[in-house]
Design a binder for these strands. Structure first.
Lengths: 201, 201, 201, 201
DNA sequence: TCATAAACGAGACGGTACGTCTCGTCTTGTG
DNA sequence: CACAAGACGAGACGTACCGTCTCGTTTATGA
């Protein structure tokens, strides 16, 4: 958010875009998705309402672009040679993403909002991007013989993230590094035990 | 939902209450929380808007009471003598709760809505009720020696439910019995491996 | 306008109606039809925009009702026994209607505005009401033998009013009593000369 | 409208001007002054909005110039030696001007529009030009002794035109040649009767 | 013929008003 | 005298034009 300025060369258009997206994130953090109004965003960005409608078409477009801009380059793919450590780092990476107030607000906005097609797609993208990154971690472990053959990578990845999102969205508990480590450890233990081995179908 | 009327004795008041709560659930299922309007509920219940505002004070109160009425007696506590089977049945119980369209809509309403204190409390209650029921299952297993001493029951319970809610709220995937079984198996394996053993703190 | 209050007993509704119609006339006088905004009317009436849209549906409905309320009981039908004097008084009556700033503004609004069906009907009513009142004046004169048989009353009435509206709408000249007298005299002279006698058709 | 092209030699500028003025007239005829938008005119003319604002400054300037271009050389001054016939021809000339849809639209635009200074001046010019042309007709008649000395030419001219504009703007009736003849006859009869003789003041 | 000033195209923007939609309060006539 | 029926205040929504501005391109014309 802060350093977005550097990426905005020149024109008024780019300046406007930046101001609006920043304002959107700020409003998201302060009031949440449900209470986010175009007027408030425009006012905070020092921009006319009309401009927002012209370029983003309303609340959804606003959030969609702000989130996409925010989500870019958030996840880190670990490769230490050890599954357990890899999973732990992956969990920590998720934790890092969800721990800051900004991120939490964004995640809540994305996953606690309405059912519009645009939001659906956003959610799907969010997950797809992360799954695409994490799946190889498990695949490599299988190749290295650290996990039993037939282990389903997608399910593993899901079970690492689930407890963290669960805490944030359902339990409303604060996320901790310990929780992340635990989620990774649980999944790792189960994986070693062959629970994720998929029957030949 | 349909036969709920029988459980409500006597007066017009009770009849009104029932009609409104039924209508609220129906609207929740059809349109979701975000698009739920007091007017629509009142119209569907054949009741005046004013009445709804008088008795429930608005959308939130409406949903809160409807959900509480709905949530009563949804969970089943298994006790088969075998942790693995107990956890599996517990997971299946969650699955049953989340699988029907009505339940899914209610859950989405509760956990995908706003941040009002009332909703927060509702979420908290939702979780507390279920945790209270499930914790003894794990406790018993520890007593029986099926799980290592020091196993944290609350964490175990969380990890059973997490993947299911995650699927529903984050991944928007359909829930399956297999997913429930997998969640239970993962948690059980980890528990047997001592992952949930809490260091003396 | 000022004494409209007496005719409004009781309810908030009636009070609102009166305030809005008064405000509409005031705005009409000050800024004219083209520059009349719903917002300004609502503000002046101390009423919410929404209320205006609910009850009058927008600018046109507003003007339509205000004008109708205004137009009620504006014209006087003379019957002195003498055509020339009757026509003169009729012209004076029109003059009285058009001479005050309020009336002039209303007339400009009605006849200088858009082409919507509602305004068209308003114009038609305006004319019809006045024609209905004035036609008997000419008819009586024919019966009395003061005007030749076959004199077309409608055309006579039109020619009395035409120069006055012409001055107001086209020439933007101030209306004078002398102009009204002249219009009546011209029409009377032509009528006596048989110019308005309609060929048997 | 169509042959306006001949008066526009060479340049893109002149071509643009012609296209825009034509488009303005067309929009005026189709939608009337109130609904005339700069955007529509620009689009129809195949010209950019900006160009219109640059050269005409907005809706009013557009209409003003279009109307002036249109109004040039519309009136015909008769001189048959007979007042009655002269007045009749003059009335017919007005009728010709007002009868076509284009002309009617233009007139409505000029006289049924707003109250801006520019439009006021346009109205004044419209009338002045015509009065200047017509006044000599009456003056000659007085010289020839066909009308009484002291007859006020300006009032005569006004009374010829009034019923026709009245029909168009107030009554919204279709103009007919008969109506024009009647207006002339009425005025002529009154003039012969000395109604227009102005007292020495 | 070629430089240069003028006009134009493209399009983002601030601004005003529009007309619509809910929400939640407030008023009122009626039973 | 309570309450259903519904008018009202409040405020966000999304749209349409207005008129301004900037930047780059085209075009006419006279040195």
């Amino acid at each position: 958010m802060a350093d977005a300025g550097r990426a905005r060369p020149g024109g008024r258009t780019a300046r406007t875009r930046g101001a609006v997206l920043d304002a959107t994130l700020a409003e998201l953090v302060r009031h949440g998705y449900a209470a986010l109004t175009v007027d408030a965003v425009a006012a905070r960005a020092g921009v006319n309402r009309t401009t927002v409608y012209r370029r983003w078409g309303g609340r959804e477009g606003l959030v969609a672009e702000a989130v996409e801009a925010f989500a870019a380059g958030q996840a880190r793919v670990p490769d230490t040679g050890d599954v357990d450590e890899d999973l732990r780092r992956w969990a920590r990476s998720i934790f890092d993403t969800l721990a800051t107030p900004e991120s939490a607000a964004v995640v809540r906005a994305v996953f606690g909002g309405g059912d519009s097609p645009r939001l659906r797609e956003l959610r799907h993208r969010w997950w797809t991007v992360r799954a695409t990154l994490a799946v190889p971690v498990v695949a490599r472990a299988v190749e290295r013989g650290q996990l039993p053959a037939g282990t389903d990578p997608v399910e593993v990845v899901k079970h690492v993230g689930a407890p963290l999102y669960y805490r944030l969205l359902v339990l409303n508990e604060e996320l901790t590094a310990a929780a992340a480590d635990l989620a990774a450890a649980v999944t790792a233990a189960a994986a070693h035990a062959g629970v994720f081995v998929r029957e030949a179908s």
